[in-house]
Structures are given as structure tokens and as C-alpha cells.
Simulated scan of single mutants.
Amino acid sequence: MSKVLLIDDDVELVDMLKEYLEQEKFEVNVAYDGEAGAAEALTGQYAIAVLDVMMPRLNGVDTLRRIRAKSSMPVVMLTAKGDDTDRIIGLELGADDYVPKPCSPREIAARIRAILRRASAENNEQSPYSPLAVGALSMWPEQRRATWNGKPLELTSSEFNLLEVLARNAGKPVSKQHLSEQGLGRPLARFDRNIDVHLSSIRQKIAALGSDKSCIQTVYRLGYQFIKE
């Protein structure tokens, strides 16, 4: 049973989501404001959090920032329909996915399952003694751990998945459709820029570890490519 944390001040929506997720065999706990939600998320008890952007005491963006300062647990954000600003800021801060409101419990359950299924598959795929190594990058999928030139590379769950797909195909262009299916667990939607934002974040994190050039290149009309050094 996977434990889910819902962080949202909309009592009616939370009750509906909690009831549905429990019927789907998830264990669910609830926090009704950002302060309580961040504290609960950082207890380490949860497989994933679902976080609303608009909340009292501490909004969703600041709550995510507080979580990301100490944890890489998967986070799905709930944003107002059509509000690209909140969505992009959330992704840049390390959200793994987003769902625009109004949303159905079924869709949220599907997004949660996709993220957790991908993480579980990676955990069982490789021996802990056999890292995936390409140039300065080393990844241990079963531990969800990565380093760059021996320094810890702190990635969100979705960032880790996308970088792993690129690393396994190093030297070859990978389409955004393939990245979305293999890295995010869902088909690429029209006008979806999640992958672009996630990869921009990865580039920034690698640069912060001392890399003076981007190992991830955009390939015109094809997608992205991890450059072998």
C-alpha cells in the first residue's frame, strides 16, 4: 500500500479525493494548509504528495520550495485551469507533474500510479553495484541516486526518470513523445512543456556542480540528446 499526502484547504475536494484513493487501495493522510503540509511531508512517511497551489498560511509554491529544500519525494501539483504561471513555477521548483482544477479523482489516481510505477520499476531494474555511467554522470536507479563528477546530483523523481532515459540513449536523439512515455509515464499532450521545464532544471543543477557546458542538447524537430563526453 502506497501512502499519499493530500495538501489542500478545499475540504470538500479533499474528502472526495481521500475516499476515492482509499477505494483504490492507497493509504491517505490530509493537511489543510501549507505549513502543516510541508511539516508532514518531511516526516518521510509518504510515497507521494498532492499539493494545491492556492492555500492559507503557506501557498503551494512556497510549500513545494520548503519540501524540495530537504526532500526529493514525488509531488503532484493542483493548479487553476489555464494558469501557466503557477504550473511553470511549480515545475521549475521540482514538481513531478501537475493537474489543472477542476479535476477528477480518477485522473489524480492515474497520475499518482504512473509516477509510483515508474519509480518502482527503476528500483528493481539494476544491481546497486552496477551504476549507469555516461561521462561525468553516474546513476543508481534502484537507489534513485545520481552524481556528477562524484558530487551528489539532487533530482526530483521526474527529473531522475528523464535524465535516465537520455543517459540510456546517450549519443542518440530521443523524441519528446518517448521521453514523456518513458520518463513521465504518459503520452505527450499537445502544447505540453513539462519536459522542457524539467530538462532546463536538470541543466541548471548540473551547471551548479561545475559543468561549463550542457550535456543535454536540443535536437531541432527531433527532441533531446545526452552528449557523450
Rank of each mutant, 00 (worst) to 15 (best):
E107D: 13
T218C: 02
Y220A: 09
S180T: 08
S158G: 06
S175V: 03
F191H: 14
V30P: 08
V28A: 09
E27K: 08
D52S: 11
N124A: 12
D8F: 07
A207T: 12
K25E: 14
L166R: 02
I227Q: 11
G44A: 12
H178R: 11
D15I: 02
P74N: 01
R186A: 13
P152G: 03
R221G: 00
L163M: 08
V75A: 01
S130D: 12
G90L: 07
L5P: 03
Q177N: 00
Y20F: 14
V165A: 04
E107Q: 14
A170Q: 00
V14P: 00
S71A: 13
P105D: 06
L5H: 03
E159D: 04
R144N: 15
C103V: 15
A110C: 08
N169S: 15
E229G: 12
A136E: 15
V99C: 08
E159T: 03
M73P: 00
G183S: 07
S201I: 00
V134D: 07
S2M: 02
K176M: 13
I112E: 03
Y220R: 14
E35C: 01
D9Q: 09
R66G: 02
A121N: 14
K81G: 12
V76C: 05
V75Q: 01
P173C: 02
S175Y: 04
K101C: 07
V174Y: 06
L17W: 11
Q143D: 14
E154Y: 11
V61H: 01
V99M: 07
S201Q: 00
Q204I: 06
V53K: 01
R144K: 13
Q225S: 06
A121S: 12
R113F: 03
R203V: 08
A38V: 01
T43L: 13
D10I: 01
H178G: 00
D62G: 00
S72R: 10
T43Y: 05
N169Q: 14
M1F: 12
T43V: 08
D9S: 10
I67M: 04
E40A: 11
I195G: 05
Q45W: 03
D83I: 05
R111F: 03
E125F: 09
A121H: 03
A41G: 05
A36D: 13
P102D: 06
I227E: 10
K176D: 03
L21A: 12
A208G: 02
A207N: 10
S175C: 04
P105M: 09
G210Y: 11
I108G: 05
S120I: 00
E122D: 10
Y224C: 01
